[in-house]
Design a protein around this nucleic acid. Structure first.
Lengths: 215, 215
DNA sequence: GGCAAAGTCGTACACCTTGTCAAAGTTAAG
DNA sequence: CTTAACTTTGACAAGGTGTACGACTTTGCC
């Protein structure tokens, strides 16, 4: 790419909080694109921009009018899913539960959402944004971290591990459980159960403090 | 490149045992390509076939003469690394150690090798072979599984979890630890330590059975 | 040493995908 | 209704994958 002008001034791709004068039209396109991308990438992570555009009912150029690159679309998809999970976790009122219970609750909620978009687990994180891959999970890991800390202070969890690491490890175990299901080596129920007990062990939760598993 | 069509049906990437009618020349090229690929992809996972070929000192066409597609090269790289790890684990004599000690030993050995090729952690698994992604780890997970089973039978580990799941979870935790280091959120030493204790907890190892951490 | 086959190179091509550009047509907003 | 925002059409450059084939080197082996 010799010409890399970057003079996309007039156009307004992903914009800041100032609702300057964006038309409802554009907003509709944006979400149509993300919707389609979520759906398509959920099945075929390598779907092209063309395919996404078609599925969204717009042209490829329109996609580029809103997102400067394919990666930005990927990021938008990721953000959408994270937001969805985050919202679901909000209504779960984790903070009002005992740490261990809250942890299990979080696991269930996240698990269910992640399960809705099977292919997205393998969606390659945007190569450029790879370093921010963990930032994407931030809202979720933050909650995990808080729960871990709270449980450690209340004595529900062992104090031997750093909350940040526990959070990362939890996400990793969640992915592993999902992969086992995807590979057909475990049933969803078995994987969910294994995940629950595994995480509790990781946190050093008292075995007897364990609430009963649902279903 | 069409010259080798029929012969390669078996497709076993190990390829050592059948020097049937392959020239030393070709063998040299093959390993030069994999060498270069390991090196290049270790830094830049999206390296093109052209780049790999150049680094190997051959032409792109020669690469295609040996590997029908880019993915096959990726697979060969993966296999090479797995083989290396497997060999290292062989000389570690894990079976002669107590299960818990052997587990920690395996962790250390694998960790060190994985650490040698930082970028490869993020190398996108060949889209086509994605379902076999776990098969690639097979030699390692098999060992893990065996250790888990052995430890459970000897009473060193808790019996509450299936060995297969423990193996998968261990690999996942290993990746997570590596990611934390790569992201600069943990020092290698801290991550390795967190991994050790985390895995032991996961397996339900008696805390007192824990050998002292080296270094 | 010489010869045929295996292997490699050079060049060329078909195809796809990502980004970019500009002009013309539509649609929403004031 | 008029303007600016948005979308579409169409075209293009760059770069990657995979294929094809003729010509040139190297190896294996007699």
């Amino acid at each position: 790419m010799p010409s890399k002008g970057a003079k996309e001034s007039a156009g307004a791709p992903g914009d800041r909080p100032s609702p300057r004068r964006r038309r409802a039209d554009a907003e509709r396109s944006r979400s149509a694109i993300v919707d389609a991308a979520v759906r398509l990438l959920g099945e075929r992570p390598e779907a092209s921009v063309e395919a996404i555009a078609a599925a969204a009912g717009v042209t490829r150029q329109t996609v580029y009018a809103h997102y400067p690159s394919r990666n930005e679309v990927l990021t938008a998809v990721f953000d959408r899913l994270t937001a969805e999970t985050d919202a679901a976790l909000d209504s779960a009122r984790l903070d009002e539960l005992p740490a261990a219970t809250g942890l299990l609750r979080l696991l269930d909620v996240s698990w269910e959402i992640a399960d809705r978009y099977p292919g997205l687990r393998h969606a390659e994180p945007p190569p450029a944004d790879r370093r921010q891959e963990s930032e994407q999970h931030r809202p979720i890991t933050d909650r995990l971290e808080r729960i871990a800390r709270r449980g450690q202070e209340s004595g529900e969890f062992d104090r031997g591990a750093e909350p940040r690491w526990l959070a990362a490890a939890t996400v990793a175990l969640g992915h592993a459980a999902g992969a086992e299901v995807a590979a057909g080596r475990m049933t969803p129920a078995a994987a969910a159960e294994a995940l629950r007990t595994g995480v509790l062990r990781l946190y050093g939760a008292d075995a007897e403090a364990r609430p009963l598993p649902d279903e």
